[in-house]
């Protein structure tokens, strides 16, 4: 039980840090799962328009029980509401909006990220393939792609690698990685460690990352 509580706390820590990526006034797509949780932590006073690739710009709160509309869902198929000023449209329009680089930011989950910013997050060979959904389009769409994930896998092995071992979702698409331990930027010449989370040191981050990390001149510690 204690372990489960820890897991929830870690997810919250990552989601809260990811929320700081959202600039007031921006259009944002949040992936399914942990990225969707980021919406719960959007700070008061920030004006954000969340896009859902199934055809909604302006996702509102989850509905009260009596407000539930079966025709109104997000891309994770959860019942939602539409906020004031929202619009509905087709999936073709939705992905035109995405591919056309009209979204400012997308926050997505990841299984592996490489030092070149390659992302793998949709299939594990040998396991049943469920499909990529909209991920392969979104990684080429939003102006900034932030990947949130655990720093290491269940076996304690690095997930930030020289090269992804899993089939890719997109090549050279990631701008920033936020994990439970650190914030890492993908630069032209490789990865740069920019923030270290509470309870970790830069050396520990380097040890738990397979890809080479350059330490930022402006490295910040204990930022979340």
């Amino acid at each position: 039980m204690a372990k489960q509580v820890d897991k929830a706390a870690i997810r919250e820590r990552i989601a809260r840090r990811a929320e700081r990526e959202i600039v007031s006034g921006s259009y944002v797509n949040l992936g399914i799962g942990m990225p969707t949780m980021v919406a719960n932590y959007i700070q008061d006073g920030k004006q954000v328009v969340l896009q859902s690739e199934n055809g909604l710009l302006g996702i509102g709160k989850y509905p009260l029980k009596e407000e539930v509309d079966p025709d109104l869902i997000n891309a994770g198929k959860e019942t939602v509401t539409a906020q004031k000023g929202a619009s509905f449209f087709s999936n073709a329009e939705s992905f035109a909006m995405i591919r056309g680089e009209h979204l400012d930011l997308a926050i997505l989950g990841g299984m592996e990220v490489s030092e070149k910013g390659d992302l793998a997050n949709w299939m594990i060979p040998g396991k049943m393939i469920k499909g990529m959904g909209g991920a392969m389009d979104i990684v080429h769409g939003a102006k900034k792609i932030v990947i949130i994930m655990d720093h290491v896998n269940k076996q304690g092995e690095p997930k930030i690698l020289k090269q992804c071992s899993l089939p890719l979702t997109g090549k050279n698409v990631v701008d920033r990685i936020i994990t439970d331990r650190a914030v890492i930027d993908v630069k032209e010449d490789g990865l740069e460690l920019v923030e270290v989370a509470e309870g970790w040191t830069a050396d520990q981050i380097i040890d738990s990352t397979e890809a080479e990390l350059k330490i930022s001149e402006n490295l910040q510690t204990d930022t979340y």
């Binding site: 690739e53 999936n91 073709a92 992905f95 995405i98 392969m136 389009d137 769409g141």
Partner: peptide, 24 residues
Amino acid sequence: PQGTLAERIRAGGAGIPAFYTPAG
């Protein structure tokens, strides 16, 4: 990919035989 699927269908109805997309 979902956006590619939507666009392949849109293209089918719009007389466009094929198109290029970054997805994939």
